[in-house]
Each structure stands twice: as C-alpha cells, then as structure tokens.
Design a protein around this nucleic acid. Sequence first.
DNA 1: GTCTATAGAAGGATAGAC
DNA 2: GTCTATCCTTCTATAGAC
Lengths: 203, 203
Amino acid sequence: MDKIESNTEEKIFNAATEIFITKGFDGARMQDIADFAGINKAALHYYYRSKKRLFDAVFEKIANQILSRLVFVLDENLTLEEKIKYFFREHISFLQNNPTLPTFVVNELNRNPEKIKKFIQKINLKELGSKLENQHKEELENYNITKETIPMLIVSIAALCVFPFVDRVLIESVMKEIGYNFDDYMVKRKEHLSDFVIKAILK
Amino acid sequence: MDKIESNTEEKIFNAATEIFITKGFDGARMQDIADFAGINKAALHYYYRSKKRLFDAVFEKIANQILSRLVFVLDENLTLEEKIKYFFREHISFLQNNPTLPTFVVNELNRNPEKIKKFIQKINLKELGSKLENQHKEELENYNITKETIPMLIVSIAALCVFPFVDRVLIESVMKEIGYNFDDYMVKRKEHLSDFVIKAILK
DNA sequence: GTCTATAGAAGGATAGAC
DNA sequence: GTCTATCCTTCTATAGAC
C-alpha cells in the first residue's frame, strides 16, 4: 500500500495482516505468516513475542484506519444530506478496496468484546452526539427524525453500507446467478443508497 | 428447544451446535463439545467420524432452519407491503431468539464458498424472482421500484434486518453507552424498519 | 538479527477393553 | 455403545549457533 516494505518487522506485519484477515486468529498459522513474509518463523517471535501480540498489533492498526476515515461527520460545513451522501460514497469506496475488513473486525469484536471499550472511549459517543445535534438542529425540522429514531438511522446507514461486504460471498453469488457483477452493483449502490435513505427520512 | 435430548447422538449434536456457533470451526475443540455433552470424546468420533462431518451436520441443519422460515414470501395472499412488514417482524423475532446465527453462517460461507451453491440451488432464484414479479405486477406501479432496483431493495431489507445481529457486540455496547437496551431497541426497530423501507420505495 | 533445530503442549483420531 | 489410554500430527514458542 504505502512505501515499499523495507525492514523485517514491516514485512512480518504486512504478512500477518494478510493472513489474519483471511483466516482469522484461530485459523492463522505462524508458519503461514512466516512463509508469506519470506522470513523465518523464529523472527516472528523475536519481533512480536507471541501470536496474540502480533494479532493485536494488526487489529489496532486496522481499527484506527477505519476510525480515522469517519472524522468528516463532524465537519460543520456539510449539511446532513451531504454527510449521508459523503458517507455512502467514501465508505463504500474504502470497503471496495478493503472488502474483507468488515468480517475480520466483526469476528474479532465478537470473540473479544472488551476491545470495544477502547473503540468507544476513542469515539466519545455522547460528545459526538450532542455536537452533531447542535450542528443540524434547524435542519432536523425538515426531516422525519426524532431523538428516538436517531440511533435507528445511524444503525441503518451502517447496515446498508457494510452488510454487503460482511455477507459478500453470498451476495456475490446471488448477483452472479441473476446476471449482475458485484463490483458494478456496489458502484451503483453508492448513489442508490443516498436517495433511498434521504427519501425515507424526509417529512 | 424441542423435546428433551434422549440419545447420545442428539446430545452430541446439540452440544456441537452450541460450541461451533460460539467459537467457530477453528476455535471449537472436540473436548469442549464432549464436555458440554457430558460424554466422552471418543463417542464423538464414533457417531460423526470427524470434526468436519460433525460441523457439516450442524451447519446443514441451521441453514435449512433459516431457509424454511422464508417460504412465506411466495404467499400469494399477501401484498408487497404486508410481506415487508411480515419479514421484519418474523425474521427479527427469529434472530432475537437465535442472535448468534448470522455471524456463524456468514463465517462459514466466507470460509467455504462452495456451500453457497447448495444454498442457491435450493432457492432457485430465477424462478422465485419471476413468480414474485408476477404476483406483484400491478402493485409495483405504486412504488418507485424498477427492475434495476429490485436487487438493491432485497439486499437493503436483508441488511437492515440482519446487520444488528452480525455486529451485535458493537451495537449493544454503543446502545448501552447512550442509555438504550439492545433488546428493547430491536423490538422497536421491527416496526420502525417497515415504515422506513416503505416510505423509501413509495412513489 | 536471522537461522536451524527442537522442546513442549494441544488437539484430532483410533485401538482395544468392557 | 461407551470408556480409557494412547498415537500422531500440528502448532506455538524457545534455545543456541552463526
């Protein structure tokens, strides 16, 4: 992705990312990672001490990558509709380039719920919520949104965006069966979803 | 769930279901399953020969359970809106009782894409599609639905319904943080989603 | 820092008694 | 059919040479 992998530590990290994402923690083998990195197995322990630590390093990096792409929602120059459009367009593009990330993250959070606390602390939900509410206070009157339905809306937007990737293998097969191509489908879906959601929330 | 587990085979099967669902294939241990069933490890191999076969038996049963709950979509006495309402209400109720199933199925399909072929053959998508189209031909004129957006709609409905369970741990934590309870939230969500979707597709 | 060799533990599977 | 004991492979992790 970024620069050419220079040192061994980086090679190991990149190989581990690849292997952990495709096979999960339990399915991944240190030998697989070593082979993929073109390096000896002992080096993995030299740099990362244990499989668990190596995994945690990979997960941490990925979690931060995802979070850092969401800061735009606080941009005060964007209207609510612009944010929705922006979210679908940017986030689906990101997932198109990293289609296996959602499954990986979901699995890890399921197996290791305590990691979520870190996640949540980083975001500081309540502050985020009130900031957003202030930013769009007047706008909200044009929409069919109440304090009660805000969590519904947020989960729905996330669902519409992320689900096709989590369930990708199934949806890809179904699309092929009826003559669609998954990537083309997702390209169209980006624009479709904005209209879909905005229509649903307009008064 | 059903009757009291009578024989050993059934005990093993139920224990395996529990363990495989919570830990996945790679994470599950034959010893865990044996302990959970209150039976010896050798018995597992006596009845199911290998871990893989035991797993496949469990997966097959669950896949059929899910599919069998979807036949109502072909009920010709229901309008399109009724089917949408029915789907959200019934399917979310089912998932509330089996909240860990989506993750389990998604993971297995990701690791073993060839299983999807079986799935798809059982459904016979094209026939299903044309039957549905005929059933609702006149109705469709009231909605903002074209041949192009049907796959969008179906994926969206599935996403809105299933995603909260796939990503349950995260959403549950977020809800708790802002003072909501996941189960209460999902109860409300059932009704909310019908309105949301129907509003989005109305002309 | 990187390699080879190997320790040591865990897990799937089977043999054989009952 | 069910159990104990055990085989054999696989995997993480480390020791020690270079």
